[in-house]
Design a protein around this nucleic acid. Structure first.
Lengths: 162, 162
DNA sequence: ACCTTAACTTAGCATTGGCTAAACTCTTGT
DNA sequence: ACAAGAGTTTAGCCAATGCTAAGTTAAGGT
C-alpha cells in the first residue's frame, strides 16, 4: 500500500506561486524525489535483510529456524513470526507452523541479489581503506541505498585496485 | 522509548547451545549488532533530514515555512506538523502556531553536521564517476549509514582525485 | 514412553510516520 | 476593511515494526 502525497508537482503545469522562482520549484521537485526514493527503499530494505539472512542460515545449517533469525537480527521471536507472515504474503518465504523456514524462487532471487550487492559494497569499502569491522557494519546500512549505477562504479573501483 | 531486545548475547557469558559452535555464536552477535545499528540509524535519519532541510530553507528564503518543508520532503502538510512536534520535543526546532519554523542551537549543529556528511558523500560519488543525478539521489540515502571512519576515507579519496 | 524444556505462536500494546478531511488563521488584494 | 485563498492545524485513520506475557508444540534425554 504505497501512499502517494498529493504534493508532487505535475510535470507539465507550471505550479509556481508568485514568490517561487522556477529554479526553486525545480529544486523542490528534485529533492522530494530523492526523499521519496529513500522512503521507498526503507520499505523493501527490511524484507531483503530477513530474506538474505534466511538464505545464509539455510546454506550454513541446512535449515533456517525462526529462533536463529531472531538471534541474528537482534530481535524478539514474536517479531520474526510477524515478519514472516508479511514475507509469506509477499511470496518470498513459505513455512508450516512450528517448522523451518523455506524460501520461494522469488525469495532466493532476492537473496542472491542482496548478497551480490552486499559483497560489492563491503569489498569496495575495504578497497577504500576502511577497516574490516567498520566495512561490515557500514555495508549493511549502505547496501540498500545504492543504485545500480553506483554499484557498478564501486565494482569497477575494486577491480582497478587489484 | 528505545526497545532493547532481550536476545543480545551477554559479553561475558558463553550463551552457547549445544548445537551452536562458538564461531556461530560470535557471528550471530556481530551480525545482530550491525542490524541494530541500522535500526538505530533509521530513528535519527528522518529527524536529520527535516532539520537539514529547514536549515536550507532558512538560508535560501530567510525563513522556513511548513508548507515548503512539505513540498520539498514530498509529504503532506499534516505530516510536517506532526514531525515538527517531535522535533520540538527533542529540542531541535521551535515554532509558534502559524509562524515560521526556527532551529535551536542543537538544530543548527545537527544541520551543519548533516550538510558536511552530505557534501562529502555526494562529492565522493561524483569523484567515483557516478552521474550528477544519481549522486544526488544516492547520497541522500547513503549519508546516514556512513560511519566517521568511512566518511574520512571518502574525503581522502576526493582529495586524492584532485 | 513421557516429561522437560526450548522453540514457536498468539494476543495485545506502543511508536513512528504516513494519509485525508475539515476547521482554523493569516495575509493580501480590492 | 474585509473576503478569499493560501497556509496551518486538528482529528482520526492506517500499516509497519518493535516489544512482553502467556499459551502451545515438538524433540531429546532418561
Amino acid at each position: 500500500m504505497l501512499y502517494v502525497a498529493n504534493h508532487s508537482i505535475p510535470a507539465n503545469e507550471p505550479y509556481r506561486s508568485s514568490k517561487m522562482s522556477q529554479n526553486a520549484s525545480k529544486k523542490a521537485k528534485l529533492q522530494s524525489q530523492a526523499f521519496k526514493r529513500t522512503r521507498a527503499d526503507h520499505q523493501s530494505e527490511l524484507a531483503e535483510d530477513y530474506v538474505e539472512l534466511i538464505a545464509d542460515l539455510i546454506d550454513e545449517k541446512s535449515e533456517a529456524r525462526g529462533n536463529d533469525v531472531a538471534i541474528r537480527m537482534g530481535v524478539a521471536n514474536a517479531t520474526v513470526v510477524k515478519m514472516l507472515k508479511r514475507l509469506m504474503e509477499r511470496g518470498l518465504v513459505t513455512q508450516e507452523p512450528y517448522r523451518e523456514i523455506m524460501l520461494t524462487g522469488d525469495g532466493w532471487a532476492m537473496a542472491e541479489n542482496g548478497r551480490k550487492r552486499h559483497t560489492i559494497v563491503e569489498n569496495f569499502l575495504l578497497a577504500l581503506g576502511v577497516s574490516r569491522e567498520v566495512a561490515r557494519i557500514d555495508s549493511e546500512g549502505i547496501e540498500h541505498h545504492v543504485s545500480n549505477e553506483t554499484l557498478k562504479a564501486m565494482a569497477k573501483f575494486v577491480t582497478r585496485q587489484n
